[in-house]
Design a protein around this nucleic acid. Structure first.
Lengths: 332, 332
DNA sequence: CATTGCTACTGTATCGTTACAGATTTCAGG
DNA sequence: CCTGAAATCTGTAACGATACAGTAGCAATG
């Protein structure tokens, strides 16, 4: 900036104000400054700005290590950076081991002023992170909803609708005894999915087979073993709704270990974050949850929150869409 | 820091120097300062440090958007953060669309001093990014090797060994006509894998079936269609080595579309980044590439480079290990 | 002609930290 | 008692940016 001031013969202050289009700078001067700035490829020094103004130009993505298992981080990160690429913002990834206090990283960010905005996930109905962030007025967006009466930016997948539609599909195929592999009970979307599932059972006249031994956070092995046991029992369901793609893999393994076959002894619908299951097990009906889109929406939401837009305008819910069955290329 | 200075009655400079254990500060003073600092939970202001010293305490992970497809980003990010968690470093993700100049993000980091170290991937034998980073003396580590005579920190998976051992396994099963789904030709590990494959063919006395229509960067659909065609032809191979997990999925689909079966008409070995394939298609032999480990190794390597350790001590090669076939839980 | 008000510009202080060049005290040696 | 050196501590300036409180010039007003 000093260089620009020297080159234009102006004061440093003038250059600073010209670049941010202040009202007390002459139009021609602004033009001149902008031109020179572009010529020499001026980029404001982030440390300078941050020290003086407190603005970090950083969005922090707070991750649980659990999320890795689901392979959700990749597309999320990509989605966020797609949006941030057009801005001055950088994306910083802040992890924490779920065994520890989930407020840890939030406190760190608040205390050190490490970011202008935060993206968090694995939301709970009463989430202390949301309380804290709201109190301390740090803009944020959540992947998933809460139930605390606090209106905040979020993006969510309509898990209720997913489960409801999944039940519809299974009943359409003549299945009546349905089971749900659900999210862990402390997360908000547990009840969403549960509600959709039960509404579906009622509307389409099917019955529920209890399966609470595991949830989508359990290991594949635990899920497989528990499900094999269920499939060997008298209660064996004939329709399966899986709340996660990796869970579905374990369920399939359990079902097959019990000597049964997907598509014959039971049908299955799963929410999936990628195409893999559809390719390898086309007999499973899949609903694609677009995590990359979620990343984009969340990034837009935090940025909106930072700009001061009202939170209720920064909420979005993505509707599940059934994927067409895997089709062979026509030319073959 | 001002607060600490006030509380201890010392000068700000003294506090600063005490905290970094300078030699001209009395032992007792240091102790006192450290105690007070811990008490009030002092964290150095990053902007202040960065402005004064130029040290950003940032490691930048430069990503191609392509890498998302392979689902490689998640575990990589997690691995890196596992190491950085014990340090003052933050991880910033810097993406770029591969259609544009791969040097773009590197130049940005160099010009703006955005990071103390960089992690890059998708290495080419003569990689301009390595040249630039070396010239400008910015510490870095690469996921994959180069062939430019520049000694630099890297972590790599031994793809040559992988392909060699894959051929061994296939020949052991009586397969003789082998095909390789290889990495794109411009990447360094293309030739590694190719070399291992061909050495294997020679040592174990098998022959190669040409399949250059696609590589692991192609879409699943393109790969499936090309492979179906091959499997329907006279040249159909009976042994398959897949350089990527998602590629393997497409190959299986193509093979089955041609009316054949893995394990009967052909055997298959694939490198995989996760367990999915092994669960869903246990008949495929898999070799696990631990990306999370790669993330950890790369993070350690950049940090080492930043600390000035010689590059040749910051190189590692992870050896492929065949995974045992998927086993049913004994208690069932 | 002094006053007011406006436009266009600028100097100074400051954010938190550290490099650097002192300053003070103590003590051994002459 | 003075000198010099070692040990310990400290004030000032600077990194790059911006907030704030001006200043200068000029035209319109009374």
């Amino acid at each position: 900036m000093k260089t620009i001031a020297f080159m234009t013969g102006l004061g440093i202050t003038t250059v600073s104000r010209a670049l941010k289009d202040a009202s007390d700078i002459g139009a021609e001067t602004k033009e001149r400054v902008r031109l020179v700035a572009k010529q020499i490829g001026y980029q404001p020094n982030r440390a300078g700005v941050r020290l003086r103004t407190g603005k970090t130009n950083v969005i922090s993505l707070v991750l649980t290590l659990e999320e890795e298992i689901m392979g959700i981080t990749s597309p999320m990160v990509i989605g966020i950076t797609e949006i941030l690429a057009g801005t001055q913002y950088h994306l910083v990834v802040t992890p924490y081991s779920s065994t520890k206090d989930p407020l840890g990283p939030i406190r760190y960010i608040l205390d050190t002023g490490a970011a202008d905005g935060v993206i968090i996930s694995r939301m709970e109905p009463h989430d202390p992170r949301v309380t804290l962030l709201t109190e301390r007025q740090l803009p944020f967006a959540t992947h998933g909803r809460t139930e605390m009466g606090i209106v905040h930016p979020y993006h969510d997948f309509d898990n209720e609708r997913f489960a409801y539609e999944a039940v519809r599909r299974l009943v359409e195929r003549g299945r009546r005894r349905l089971v749900l592999l659900e999210p862990p009970p402390h997360l908000t979307f547990h009840s969403h999915m549960r509600t959709g599932f039960e509404r579906g059972l009622k509307d389409f006249d099917a019955e529920s087979v209890s399966f609470h031994q595991v949830n989508i956070d359990y290991s594949l092995v635990a899920t497989r073993d528990a499900f094999e046991k269920l499939m060997r029992s008298e209660e064996a369901p004939d329709g399966i709704v899986s709340g996660s793609g990796s869970g579905a893999i374990a369920l399939i393994a359990g079902l097959e270990a019990a000597g049964k076959t997907v598509g014959e002894d039971a049908d299955m619908v799963s929410k999936v974050p990628s195409d893999f299951l559809r390719w390898l097990r086309p007999e499973v009906m899949t609903m694609y949850e677009d995590i990359r889109l979620a990343g984009r929406e969340l990034a837009k939401a935090v940025l909106g929150h930072i700009e001061g837009r009202p939170p209720e305008t920064l909420q979005s819910l993505s509707q599940p869409e059934f994927q067409p069955p895997m089709q062979r290329s026509p030319k073959v």
